[in-house]
């Protein structure tokens, strides 16, 4: 039976729809969040087919697993955290940079973020702030952070890639993260 569809419903309301097996709820959530999920997967994997697979996997998992817990944060954060995790799993499966990715496994950064942050400010707005903060970083710091976070490269790998000493890479990445934190202080509370 077709369920009434109201695209303006909140994620929390739509999640309740998923819990009672309303495919229309999943459809609305897909239309709402597939872009950011696919965009993040594409950024990490640099491969459209694999990013498509991850996107499919994320939404299918949301439906089949039903393990999202609203009290741990917004649904979109959950989807993005899961997307990054799954995408990096695939990077790991390619046998690239295994060691550094294992290290990332101990972090669930979005879970570590204050849970009210992403509820009160739209994620689109957050994304604008994050991009602005990244654009304000010196190029070498920004590049080092991106190579670490999205590509899973270790510091020695980045050093070889950029042709600079290991200590310089560590310094760039740490200073970059500290500046990023200062720029995003308003979001972090």
């Amino acid at each position: 039976m077709k369920q009434p569809l109201d695209p303006s419903q909140s994620d929390a309301h739509l999640w309740e729809g998923i819990r009672v097996r309303q495919t229309t709820a999943l459809k609305v959530l897909y239309e709402r969040h597939a872009g950011v999920v696919y965009g993040l997967a594409l950024r990490i994997l640099q491969d459209t087919r694999e990013a498509e697979d991850v996107t499919q996997e994320i939404f299918t998992t949301l439906w089949v697993q039903c393990s999202y817990q609203p009290d741990l944060g917004p649904l979109k954060s959950y989807l993005l955290m899961m997307t990054r995790s799954r995408a990096l799993d695939r990077v790991r499966a390619r046998s690239r940079k295994l060691k550094v990715l294992e290290r990332w496994g101990r972090l669930n950064p979005l879970e570590a973020a204050p849970t009210n942050l992403l509820e009160e400010v739209s994620l689109a707005e957050c994304a604008v702030h994050v991009r602005a903060a990244m654009s304000q970083l010196p190029a070498n710091q920004r590049q080092t952070l991106e190579l670490t976070f999205f590509d899973g490269f270790s510091c020695p790998e980045i050093a070889r890639r950029l042709g600079v000493p290991l200590g310089t890479v560590k310094s760039w990445s740490r200073l970059g993260l500290l500046k990023l934190r200062r720029s995003l202080q308003g979001l972090l509370g």
Binding site: L26, G35, Q56, P114
Partner: peptide
């Protein structure tokens, strides 16, 4: 600092996936 790093997840631009992804899911 971990939270700041986590916010990088939001940095990539949203990209609409091809329709076949939606079709495959549903």
């Amino acid at each position: 600092l971990q939270a700041a790093l986590g916010l990088l997840t939001l940095e990539p631009t949203a990209v609409t996936p091809p329709p076949r992804v939606r079709e495959a899911i549903f």
